[in-house]
Design a protein around this nucleic acid. Structure first.
Length: 869
RNA sequence: GCCGGAGUGGCGGAACUGGUAGACGCGCCGGACUCAAAAUCCGGUUCUGGCGACAGAGUGUGGGUUCGAGUCCCACCUCCGGCACCA
């Protein structure tokens, strides 16, 4: 039987069948039992799994299987982020309907996930394009409309004038529509927004509590929210002599540096500012209008292209503002470096303390007054750091922070302005002019305006059986679908034909898993499982998805649906899967990329790579660097092929063995073979042990030194692997420790009966230690070893501290910090004894003799450093 | 420009709390088995000198703190990621 070869396909089919029969991963709420909710970001059903999915879901599966074995009540669900643009593209390409294509992909990918043995509770599967899912999101939206958290305003979109359709950013290639090739226009249309800015402060503060989130993600979110403290105040419009505007108009500005107000030498409005029209003087009008038109047409890229010390574009309005600090007028300009969407869309300009203002002042011949003294010898331009105030009357001599405070207080006392906090974060635009998304539940009535669809008429169902040509959304093209009656006045009305941003669906799916069949958006089961104990997904979601789902959680909390403030306590962002790229330049000068699976790498005697050749023709190819797996670089590896060739366990093992989860994983065929070799070795070693027949009970007190040492290694490994999986999340080092242990076991002489008992204990431990990573083979080996019950719910092994006690420890002996010898001692030996023993060693004597011992540093059981001179 | 992360053998990576640098895997070298090859098994593998015992050097660069630094501090270089006219 020991010769029975390891056949992954057979072993894995058997294990999967067992789990299904036993409904092994079905999660049931058990009040009083510690729960663990482990969630991986749900996939978009693009057609097939890629290695990134495999890695992501393996990480999640390892964590949840570990916690299950520790006795926790684990929920690990899976679902489909099923709405989205790719379905529309595929529908055109394959002449099918987006729904059909999506459902087919889901079928296929579900099969792939099952084949990989992920421990999901499939009874909780959620598919976001189903009305039974999105109806709740529609209901929530209508409630947000009623309480003012959802509102409508104009916003710009990319408009394809040929196809007469709105394009997503990804559909704009080099400024042209991807299908028509027409130059894309910017067009302002009314769209729906959610007031995420109402939660800016809470979203920011909440980050401090998320100890289990990566710093990188929290930093990105902090920057994205972009909180800045300052003051907002009003300045009267006046003429060059300071005479007030007869219309009494004023401009509000926001500044983070009210302390520098005495250095204001001009002010600027954004080109879109509503006052531009009114205050521009007659002689400046023509030029101002030209500038405004130019700014409106310029793409964002064009506007940004001027950045970085280049001349700032702008024009004078001919009007002036009255600086309340100096009681003098300053000229008012228009410039496109001031954005309408931030602050008040108007700024006071202080060239002495702001580099952009400095640049603008320079190119427009405006005066520069420093109001913070730069250090002696400073030869730069704007000084933005701390220092004493100068040229600032009653602020002179004060440091920046103090001056800021005093200036702000003055504004408040004078009733000119107030303290103000601004955020960079903008409200979330949720309208998409696409077909394949959740219909926005709104009705437009000529008499009554925009109204939420009444709750008893929900859901607004998206028709799935459509002919999709991709030019216009089928629901936009169908007047019948649009036609409805006004819920207020009963008159004729039209439905909204825009759909939600797909981030809407992914903002609350995690909560729906808790109660997928609930007759409301959520029920009381949500609070049993939430918050998510471990969330896992790609870093590319650091800002948008991870911000939106935190926001939506707070919306649900405020609607009384959940009790927690945050959706996930711990977050892990796994690294990308990367691979070598190989290419050749074709005759037309373009690069042709070859799949690493088709390339052979030649090495020198040391193993360093010297050349790469294409297997097919034996001709060389050039190495193009290590890149994220992608179609464009043709360096993707299909997990399907790997699973067929090596089995799911090998693929799972490799995908977490070569680097820690948060780092990128470098694909290597030989690495996969190494993983496979390891599993075959474990297989044959365990079978060989089982073949030796039953063995006697372990008597820990009766072991000889060698047996005790073997047993110590086993229990050390248990402790290390447990810590690596639960605390450190370094599965690579856990696997290394298991491999090390099996290497020791292979060399261990098990001819003595008690030795066999030690070995049996070891294998029972090893099989459980790798079970979260390679569950199928472990299921089989566990049962052959006679383990109790199925492996997936076997007790996680616990290290026996008594077995870990050492009889002897190795003490490193240094002389002047240089390693000179190692000595064996009993644990806990004192410095005197250690020193005596060390000085008896020949090599130590050589380095110490003839010198005076100045100092001895002793770290018990670790190190002895003898300092001589 | 600002903010984050990282630089360690031929390669991926270990070294968690300042205490044996290079665990584990890959690759490579040697051996066993074989008619042979593959597979498998055993041994070796940072560099330099030496038969060896050993000795010297070594974690991006240059300084520093310390009995002792991959780890801490200062300055710099390179790479990756995010944000980028946010007043």
């Amino acid at each position: 039987m020991a010769n029975q070869p390891y056949n992954p396909a057979e072993v894995e089919a058997r294990a999967i069948d067992k789990w299904e029969r036993q409904e092994a991963f079905r999660a049931v709420e058990q009040p009083g039992v510690e729960k663990f909710y482990c969630l991986c970001m749900l996939p978009y059903p693009s057609g097939a799994l890629h290695m990134g999915h495999v890695r992501n879901y393996t990480i999640g599966d390892v964590i949840s299987r570990y916690h299950r074995m520790c006795g926790r009540n684990v929920l690990q669900p899976m679902g489909w982020d099923a709405f989205g643009l790719p379905a529309e593209n595929a529908a055109i390409k394959h002449d099918t309907a987006p729904a059909r294509w999506t459902y087919q992909n889901i079928e296929h990918m579900r099969g792939q996930l099952k084949r990989l043995g992920f421990a999901y509770d499939w009874s909780r599967e959620v598919t976001t394009c189903r009305p039974e899912y999105y109806r709740w999101e529609q209901l929530m939206f209508t409630r947000l409309m009623r309480n003012g958290k959802a509102y409508r305003k104009d916003a710009e979109v990319n408009w394809d004038p040929v196809d007469q359709t709105v394009l997503a950013n990804e559909q704009v290639v080099d400024g042209r529509g991807w299908r028509s090739g027409a130059v894309v226009e910017r067009k302002s249309i009314p769209q729906w927004f959610l007031k995420i800015t109402d939660y800016a402060e809470e979203l920011l503060q909440g980050l401090d509590e998320l100890a289990g989130w990566p710093e990188a993600v929290k930093t990105m979110q902090r920057n994205w929210i972009g909180r800045s403290e300052g003051a907002e105040f009003e300045m009267q419009v006046c003429d060059a002599a300071g005479a007030p505007d007869p219309g009494g108009r004023a401009v509000r500005v926001f500044t983070t540096r009210p302390d520098t107000s005495f250095g204001m030498t001009y002010a600027v409005l954004a080109p879109e500012h509503p006052l531009v029209e009114e205050i521009t003087t007659a002689e400046r009008r023509a030029e101002v209008e030209r500038f405004v038109a130019q700014a409106r047409e310029a793409t964002e890229e064009d506007r940004l292209a001027v950045e970085g010390g280049l001349e700032k574009r702008g024009v004078s309005t001919g009007a002036y503002l009255f600086n309340p600090f100096t009681r003098k007028p300053v000229p008012l300009y228009l410039a496109d470096y001031v954005l309408m969407g931030y602050g008040t869309g108007a700024i006071m300009a202080v060239p002495g303390q702001d580099q952009r203002d400095w640049d603008f002042a320079n190119s427009h011949g405006l005066p520069i007054i420093r109001t913070v003294a730069p250090p002696d010898g400073w030869e730069g331009e704007a000084w933005v750091e701390d220092g004493p105030a100068i040229n600032s009357e009653w602020l002179n001599g004060l440091e920046v922070a103090v001056a800021k405070e005093k200036a702000t207080q003055w504004l408040v006392e004078q009733r000119i302005g107030e303290r103000k906090v601004n955020y960079r974060l903008r409200d979330w635009g949720v309208s998409r002019q696409r077909y394949w998304g959740c219909p926005i539940p709104v009705i437009y009535c000529a008499a009554c305006g925009a109204l939420p669809v009444p709750e008893d008429e929900l859901p607004v169902v998206l028709p799935e059986d459509v002919t999709f040509m991709g030019v216009r959304s089928p629901i936009k093209a169908d007047p019948e679908w649009r036609k409805t009656t006004c819920p207020e006045c009963g008159g004729p009305a039209e439905r909204e034909t825009d759909t939600f941003d797909t981030f809407m669906e992914s903002s609350w799916y995690y909560a729906r898993y808790c109660c997928p069949d609930a007759d409301s958006q959520l029920d009381e089961r949500a609070d049993y499982w939430l918050p998510i104990d471990q969330y896992i997904g790609g870093i590319e979601h650091a800002i948008l998805h991870l911000m939106y789902f935190r926001f939506y959680h707070k919306l649900m909390r405020d609607a009384g649906m959940v009790a927690s403030d945050e959706p996930a306590t711990r977050l892990l962002c796994q690294g990308m899967v990367v691979a070598d790229t190989f290419c050749r330049e074709e005759d037309d000068g373009k690069l042709h990329w070859f799949n690493p699976a088709d390339v052979e790498v030649e090495r020198d005697a040391k193993g360093g790579p010297v050349a790469a050749i294409l297997r097919e023709d034996g001709e060389p190819v050039s190495f193009g660097g290590v890149e994220k797996m992608s179609k464009s670089k043709n360096n993707g590896i299909d997990p399907r092929v790997l699973v067929e060739r090596y089995g799911a366990d090998t693929v799972r093992l490799f995908s977490v063995s070569d680097s820690p989860p948060h780092q990128s994983l470098e694909w290597s065929e030989s690495g996969v073979e190494g993983a496979s070799r390891f599993l075959r070795r474990v297989w044959s070693q365990v079978l060989a042990h089982v073949d030796g027949g039953p063995c006697e009970a372990l008597d820990a007190g009766a072991l000889d030194a060698g047996q005790r040492e073997m047993r110590r290694l086993v229990h050390d490994a248990i402790a290390k692997v447990s810590d690596d999986i639960s605390r450190r999340y370094t599965f690579n080092t856990a696997i290394a420790a298991i491999m090390e242990l099996t290497n020791h076991l292979a060399r261990f002489d098990d001819s003595h009966p008690q030795s066999r008992a030690v070995v049996r204990e070891a294998w029972l431990a090893v099989v459980r230690l790798i079970a979260p990573i390679t569950p199928h083979i472990c299921e089989e080996l566990w049962s052959r070893l006679g383990g109790a019950g199925p492996a997936y719910c076997a007790d996680w092994p616990v290290a026996d501290e008594a077995a870990r006690e050492r009889q002897q420890v190795t003490l490193v002996v240094q002389v002047n910090g240089k390693l000179r010898a190692r000595i064996e001692l009993e644990p806990g030996a004192g410095q005197e004894q250690a020193l005596e023993q060390a000085l008896a060693v020949e090599n130590i004597k050589r380095h110490v003799d003839g010198k005076t011992i100045r100092k001895v540093i002793h770290v018990p059981d670790r190190l002895l450093n003898i300092v001589v001179a």
